[in-house]
Write a protein that binds this DNA or RNA. Structure first.
Lengths: 168, 168
DNA sequence: ATTAACTTTCAATTTATTTTGAAAGTTTCA
DNA sequence: TGAAACTTTCAAAATAAATTGAAAGTTAAT
């Protein structure tokens, strides 16, 4: 396979995976493009490489910066802004975990905490089932939360070393 | 908070979380409804409870069965089909992990394996960057894959016990 | 202060996804 | 067999999400 073809495939695969996980396809593709590009790219170059509009390229790049996955770079003597993706895979995974935890998991846990407190007739099957499901899911969510928190703080080799060791 | 209000909130929260994770909102809501309902419900009852059409209810319930989260129940002397959700949270988590792994992670790993094999000029920064990103992501994906595999086979208390123990 | 280079915004459009509902299909039983 | 009870399908409609592109905004250099 040629390098150019391989790059296309990578961008496509990353875009598809992103969209299956609630991340806008274009955003995942821009990220993929920056990941496999050694130097920082301008908005112009991103538009060109992925055939997207200026507005889309601008918004997407800003979102990626918001996710902590991309940073702006200024080049000596150039007015234009260039964008560069962190290439450290572990940082990427951590950053994504961190953001999704904050944006999605935490709010749900807050609601589950409230719902766990709802009182009702302990004899009523409707109440019993509700209560059990909610408290069980709450526990699970909290375990996931703790694990993510540790992961966010952890060093890669230590993290996987520990996890994979368990499963010998 | 009243039980009925709490139920509504739960269905809403689960639906929102689902849609943030690439699962159709209605599907997550039907699942939520069945989770907090002690007995199995008919298509009719699901339509009623969530104000959705017959077609939608039918398709959604079938998807949930496909995901292994819901099962059909037949009641003595009734022609209608009833639907019942597995209430075991650990089973649910495992089942979701299993399906998403199969549907989404495995295909990506297959592509990454291919892309890792692409040969190129070791002096070329474009190639070097491509190659490094792809192989790194591939390693990470394989670690996630192994962890999911173990999780799928594991017993809940053992799994979380081991994981959380690592983090003291 | 003017202009050229560049970035941002956002209403309108396009594309993708979800939902509806009525018709067609199937099963059961009198 | 006929018809009622129920399930499935799917084209059309509704809704939601992403994208465009041109105009407005900003910045830096002369």
């Amino acid at each position: 396979m040629e390098l150019d073809e391989a790059k296309q495939k990578f961008i496509e695969a990353w875009g598809k995976l992103g969209s299956e996980w609630g991340i806008n396809r274009t955003m995942a593709q821009v990220h993929a493009l920056l990941l496999i590009t050694p130097e920082a790219l301008s908005t112009e170059e991103i538009m060109e490489a992925l055939s997207i509009s200026r507005g889309n390229a601008n918004m997407t790049v800003r979102d990626l910066i918001g996710w902590g996955l991309v940073e702006k770079q200024l080049k000596q003597g150039e007015r234009k802004e260039f964008f560069y993706a962190d290439k450290d895979t572990w940082n990427i995974a951590r950053q994504v975990a961190k953001e999704r935890r904050k944006r999605e998991l935490d709010p749900v846990i807050k609601i589950l905490d409230e719902l766990s407190k709802v009182k009702g007739d302990a004899k009523d099957p409707a109440f019993k089932t509700f209560n059990k499901s909610v408290t069980d899911i709450n526990k699970l969510a909290k375990n996931v939360d703790k694990t993510l928190e540790k992961m966010i703080k952890a060093d890669e080799s230590w993290f996987w070393g520990s996890i994979l060791k368990i499963f010998k």
